[in-house]
Computed example of a mutant assay.
Amino acid sequence: MSTRIETDGRGLFYVMGPSGSGKDSLLRALRERLGPDDRVVVAHRYITREADANEASVALTPDEFQRRQALGCLALNWHSHGLHYGIGVEIEQWLAAGLTVIVNGSREYLPQAVARYPKLCAIHVRVKPEVLAARLRQRGRESEEAIARRLVRAGQAFDVPDGCLLVEIDNSGALRASADALARVVGVGGD
């Protein structure tokens, strides 16, 4: 028998955590578990940098991102580390159809996301500092100075609005264990 965390009928799961915590790997592992009858969708994210093979993202130029934002094509959007990120309005159709929707969000933007989707369930992916440092260096995207800033930011508290359900998943160890935990939270697989 699997354990599912009670989410009070929430259909939107907002996955967040520091860069390098393994959010994209967890979401990929979850997508790989989905069967044809699972009513779960992992939303892609629009971003103003090239996407890597591990993430469900669509690269946009900054001008195209701004254009889509102005046209109302983004349900959620934020700016972080010099980049723009967004989640398309298509998630609203998916939610209206009764699907479970999972998005890759931002800790800093959580209050705005909860303001728009008050019943969302926030999932915070955390990882031990030494593991995070190793992952950031392995990615090779940033300087040591930038990595140091990310490590400081990763340890800082973030605002969780009143009434927002927050679930913590430690992704410091084996991906499979963390993916099992995520699957239980969103109700994929199990009895």
Results as ranks from 00 to 15, higher is better:
62 P>F: 03
161 P>S: 05
178 S>N: 01
160 V>G: 07
58 V>I: 10
178 S>L: 08
35 G>A: 15
13 F>C: 05
99 L>W: 13
111 P>L: 12
186 V>L: 13
55 E>M: 03
117 Y>S: 11
90 E>W: 14
97 A>G: 03
164 C>V: 00
7 T>I: 12
82 G>W: 14
145 E>G: 06
134 A>M: 06
129 P>S: 03
87 I>R: 01
127 V>E: 05
37 D>W: 12
83 L>Y: 09
143 S>I: 11
22 G>M: 06
105 G>I: 03
107 R>A: 04
62 P>W: 00
17 G>D: 04
190 G>Q: 07
64 E>W: 06
179 A>Q: 02
103 V>D: 00
162 D>F: 12
119 K>V: 05
158 F>E: 02
190 G>H: 08
14 Y>M: 05
138 Q>I: 08
107 R>Q: 10
188 V>A: 11
175 L>P: 02
42 V>H: 06
80 S>H: 14
147 I>K: 07
97 A>Y: 01
115 A>V: 04
111 P>H: 12
22 G>C: 13
127 V>W: 01
47 I>A: 10
81 H>M: 09
133 A>C: 12
31 R>Q: 12
124 H>I: 05
60 L>G: 14
48 T>R: 01
72 G>N: 09
120 L>D: 02
23 K>H: 10
8 D>V: 13
164 C>H: 13
28 R>F: 10
113 A>S: 01
119 K>M: 12
105 G>N: 05
139 R>V: 10
36 P>D: 10
172 S>F: 12
40 V>Q: 00
55 E>F: 01
161 P>W: 04
22 G>W: 07
6 E>A: 13
100 T>L: 11
116 R>W: 01
164 C>Q: 09
120 L>Q: 04
160 V>S: 02
134 A>W: 02
175 L>T: 07
134 A>N: 03
48 T>H: 03
164 C>T: 15
33 R>H: 11
78 W>T: 09
88 G>N: 07
7 T>K: 00
19 S>D: 09
92 E>P: 03
3 T>Y: 08
151 L>Q: 00
